[in-house]
């Protein structure tokens, strides 16, 4: 188990290193920030001073080296625009995105699994077919369009929910959270649902497929032959088998949700990392872009690690192999 962990950690560090190279080169390719940051009237001397101040006069490998040695010490550079550490900017915005993404994950599990169970146990019922039909919409409608529709219906027409912003927050562990206030929750409802939609459909279809696949299995028949209740057969015997792929997929989707929050945050003016990154790309604020991408990579790596650990908890067959 410990050698397995160690191997995974080394792998993770290697992935991070490779990503720094890719991200760094990528950002250099998109464009020259000096053009955007400096006013067109600036003369040659001012220009040179600005370039030197940003460290852009050094050769690329030296810029990379400075970035990497900074990164190891937790310094990802200062924002060209805000003149603040890039990491600090991102850290300020992260809680908003995280609570949005986590609420979306909870929604996909809380709605997706029961709906999927129903559709799987009653595949030919009207309800089951309606759920499957709706799930196709959940997959295929574009996020921004659904977001706008939600605003149209629930904010503009019905006036039930606020259309934009994060609402009042409350502090927990030194961080501001919306989910701790009622009004904050009301602000979060639509963006979270919007972000969750694709995942609800995904979890639902996975659950249904799992039920359809597991029900004809002999172990289900044997469980029934033992005379245990139908509820126990479904919620203990079948569900535990289905949870293995669901946990894996949901876990891996968390990273995607955080990355794709960009669209939802833009539609609902949710002040999270996504909005920050869009603004930073517009002005080519390289340190912020790099820091954001590195945070996302780190998140993916950590989440993958947690998913693997969870997997071994759920599936006894995997557990044994990793122990040996």
């Amino acid at each position: 188990m410990t050698t397995w962990m160690l191997r995974r950690l080394i792998q993770a560090a290697f992935v991070m290193l490779v990503m720094t190279v890719i991200v760094f080169i990528g950002v250099n390719v998109i464009g020259d920030p000096v053009e955007i940051l400096i006013s067109p009237e600036a003369d040659q001397a001012e220009r040179a001073r600005a370039v030197a101040a940003l460290g852009l006069d050094k050769p690329l490998w030296e810029q990379y080296w400075r970035f990497l040695s900074g990164a190891v010490q937790g310094d990802l550079g200062r924002s060209f625009v805000f003149n603040e550490p890039a990491l600090k900017l991102i850290a300020q915005r992260m809680p908003a995105t995280l609570e949005l993404a986590i609420t979306a994950v909870l929604l996909s599990v809380i709605l997706g699994i029961p709906l999927g169970l129903y559709a799987g146990l009653r595949p030919n019922s009207i309800g089951g077919k309606a759920i499957m039909g709706a799930s196709i919409l959940g997959f295929s409608l574009p996020t921004f369009w659904v977001g706008l529709m939600l605003i149209m219906v629930f904010a503009v027409q019905l006036g039930w929910l606020p259309s934009t912003g994060r609402g009042p927050t409350r502090e927990l562990f030194g961080v501001q959270w919306s989910f701790l206030t009622w009004d904050g929750l009301r602000h979060m409802a639509m963006p979270a649902l919007n972000l969750a939609l694709g995942n609800i459909a995904l979890v639902l279809r996975l659950t249904r497929a799992g039920v359809r696949e597991n029900l004809p299995m002999d172990y289900v028949k044997f469980a029934r032959a033992k005379g245990i209740s139908p509820n126990r057969v479904v919620f203990v015997h079948v569900l535990k088998n289905i949870l293995i792929p669901i946990v894996t997929v949901v876990g891996l989707e968390i990273g995607g949700l955080i990355a794709f929050a960009v669209v939802t945050e833009s539609v609902f003016a949710w002040p999270g990392m996504g909005k920050l990154i869009i603004d930073s790309i517009n002005v080519l604020d390289r340190p912020v872009i790099v820091a954001y991408l590195m945070m996302i990579v780190l998140l993916f790596v950590v989440i993958n690690l947690i998913v693997d650990l969870l997997y071994t908890v759920l599936d006894p067959r995997v557990r044994l192999e990793t122990k040996e």
Partner: peptide, 18 residues
């Protein structure tokens, strides 16, 4: 499972793996 019990043909598949 109480008054009538059945033992299935394929032992590899009858127990729940998890």
């Amino acid at each position: 499972g109480n008054r009538i019990a059945m033992i299935f043909q394929d032992p590899m598949m009858t127990l729940n793996p998890v």
